[in-house]
């Protein structure tokens, strides 16, 4: 029975073990004094770049109307079925508008498919990431929470036009 040779046999120095421990300890000691990258969250906030996918929001035009025409494609493509849309008729040129637009943020997985499929550039991923709820009902975001003025979303829209 041949003894299986290791890829690298330890030298005597390594087999004493203590020096190797010292090496390891010095490594951890060094890293103890390295600068930390942790952000002190509520005081210090992370401002994501345009490519960040935060919570999906509906684009509100400057006249206060939503872009959304309630086509339901976001709801159709949504893998976790988070989006519920109820369309209704409006006198506006677009004919349809969402009478109800709800995203269940407990279901949302921030995949961004809704934004990708939207034919009207009406739903985009925002930079909001701090979402917390204390009950299931609060996690369902209606139009009141979803509508965001378009001027806060320009860089994401620009990003989409460039890379989508």
């Amino acid at each position: 029975m041949g003894v299986k040779k290791r890829e690298k046999d330890f030298t005597v120095w390594e087999r004493i073990y203590i020096p190797e421990i010292v090496k390891g300890l010095s490594l951890t000691l060094k890293s103890m004094f390295k600068p930390k990258f942790t952000m002190k969250y509520p005081e210090e906030k992370f401002i994501p770049s345009a490519s960040y996918r935060g919570r999906p929001v509906l684009v509100m035009e400057n006249n206060g109307e939503e872009r959304c025409v309630a086509c339901g494609l976001c709801s159709r493509v949504c893998p976790p079925l988070a989006i519920e849309v109820q369309a209704s008729e409006t006198e506006r040129e677009k004919e349809r508008y969402p009478e109800k637009f709800e995203i269940n943020m407990l279901r949302c997985i921030f995949c961004g498919f809704c934004e990708e499929v939207c034919p009207e550039e009406a739903i985009v991923m925002s930079k909001d990431y701090d979402l917390a709820f204390t009950n299931r009902a609060d996690a369902i975001y209606g139009k009141d929470k979803l509508l965001v003025p378009v001027n806060q979303l320009y860089d994401r829209i620009e990003f989409l036009r460039q890379y989508k």
Binding site: A70, C71, G72, S75, R76, A87, S88, E89, E95, R96
Partner: peptide
């Protein structure tokens, strides 16, 4: 039925 629902839903 206008705008009540998408057929696939």
């Amino acid at each position: 039925f206008r705008f009540q629902a998408r057929v696939w839903d």
